[in-house]
Amino acid sequence: MAELLRTEHLVKVYDNMSMPALDDITLTIPTGRIVGLLGPNGSGKTTLIKLINGLLQPTSGSVLIEGNRPGPVSKAVVSYLPDRFCLPGDRTAEELMQFYADFYADFDRERAETMLGSLQIERTARIKGLSKGTKEKLQLIMAMSRRARLYVLDEPIAGVDPAARDYILKTIISNYQPDASILLSTHLISDVENILDDVIFIRNGRILLCSSVEKIREEQGKSLDAYFREVFAC
């Protein structure tokens, strides 16, 4: 298992805040793992994710993807699903696929078309005319249609109905590759815990624990969801 993502003493302080959003984060993610980034709202999950994707600059410390700082080289192998809908509304699904094909060498058009078909999204449909749930699934399809090394999914199932959640989780599992990894952040733990290899608990910008999920089940005799509630009890 090679190292895919590494952060070293990563710190992020937003301009007018006194407390760091991320405080001394050091972690490694090898290839072939599905990793859950779990923590309450405001714990720093999205900040960490944005740093990995080069949307924010670290205050200090480093984040490296296959040894590269976030930039054009890392972005070519990282597929990002943001926690909000960001696709341009005036394009059609077909134009969107062409856009991805133009910029991402690892974009698998066939896979995208198959998934669009199974969700019955018309290629000529204009994005802004789609329902909210369909839009989110579309964004997920585009993210999962890339044969990337690292998939970073920020709250992929929040605000989505249970059937769609199942579809999303099945898509994530069936896209698994041993030379790639998936980092997903969520607070809907019981829905995702069966698909996670490892878990990172984060609170107030600090890592509380990094462990394999099965180890937690063996040692604690509890589900991840139950253990999380214990650790993060208010």
């Binding site: 069936s174 698994y176 069966n194």
Partner: peptide
């Protein structure tokens, strides 16, 4: 492994 994992809704490594 992948097919069964998808069916069962679990991680392929598991």
């Amino acid at each position: 492994v992948r097919e069964l994992a998808t069916e069962a809704g679990v991680n392929p490594n598991t």
